[in-house]
Amino acid sequence: MSTPDLLVQDRPAALRRLLARPELGSLIAAVAVFVVFAVVAEPFLRVSSLGTVLYAASTIGIMAVPVSLLMIGGEFDLSAGVVVTTAALTSSMVSYQFTAVTWVGVLVSLVTTLAIGWFNGWMLGRTKLPSFIVTLGTFLMLTGANLGVTKAISGTVSTKSIADMQGFESCRWLFASEVTIGGLTVKATVWWWLGLLAIGSWVLLRTRFGNWIFAVGGDADAARAVGVPVARTKTVLYLGVGFGAWVLGQHLLFSFDTVQSGEGSGNELIYIVAAVIGGCLITGGYGSVAGSALGALIFGMASKGIIYAQWNPDWFKFFLGAMLLLAALLNAYVKRRAERGPR
């Protein structure tokens, strides 16, 4: 058995690997968007604008990290937008109604978002329904519950201010503070984003669990056959979305003191767009966490750049849709390349 029967050609491996990287398209797009706005919008290059763009990107990016991991694992979460509002509402109302230290609300909120994530994962594993349907269900239920519970408790559609409550300042420091470094104002969400990004990317690429994420998204049956716990892996990914929603929800609460119960709906699609622009395949099994950050950055640059360029912001969603289509086409192309390879 010493003669090699299966000689596989390894020609331009380095170049091919670069071209097959899931982030490549989003990197080119991010540079292009940056250059366009740098040319057409003079204020875009100011340091203060960078802070604004980074903030906008971070509020998407915090959720884009777990959402992209979930997509690589082959599933969707349509409830990811409203669960952020649920997180903020829970935290606010628990603290207010029980006149507790705000940290109590923060912790109850974490338990709630994790429970919602677990419910999504459990329903998916139990019923074998598509995640599109399961999470569409939780999306609608949470949308209704956010409004219904808030109205029943506070009589209006928004929560009462908790700014004068004990613990508010320390919570605000953790979730909604800002530091100025050489004229650049960095909000707390940016640190959270970078932290989640680093952890998410490391878990995906360098741990056993990351290997399982790729496998359950790429071919769940093959993964199960070699002993990967498919349902548990997906449930943990939904817990990750719950965690991200908790962070972002606390940020919204502690930067604005009150929460509007109707918010959040629609954002889940923006998270998915960021993940797809970042190179995640809709069908799962392929993608990157770093790419989702580039997708969020493109979102931040475009949403603020359009204002700096004094264009009509109504066109922003048009731009976003076009980016999504281009990205999805590019991803399909990259996937075909990766699967076939130069044989």
Binding site: N211, F214, G218, A222, A223, V226, G227, G285, E339
Partner: peptide, 16 residues
């Protein structure tokens, strides 16, 4: 369903 097509050979080899 022997392998997960989009994953590198080494990741497939050690999967599970």
């Amino acid at each position: 369903l022997a392998v997960v097509p989009l994953m590198p050979v080494w990741r497939n080899f050690f999967l599970g």
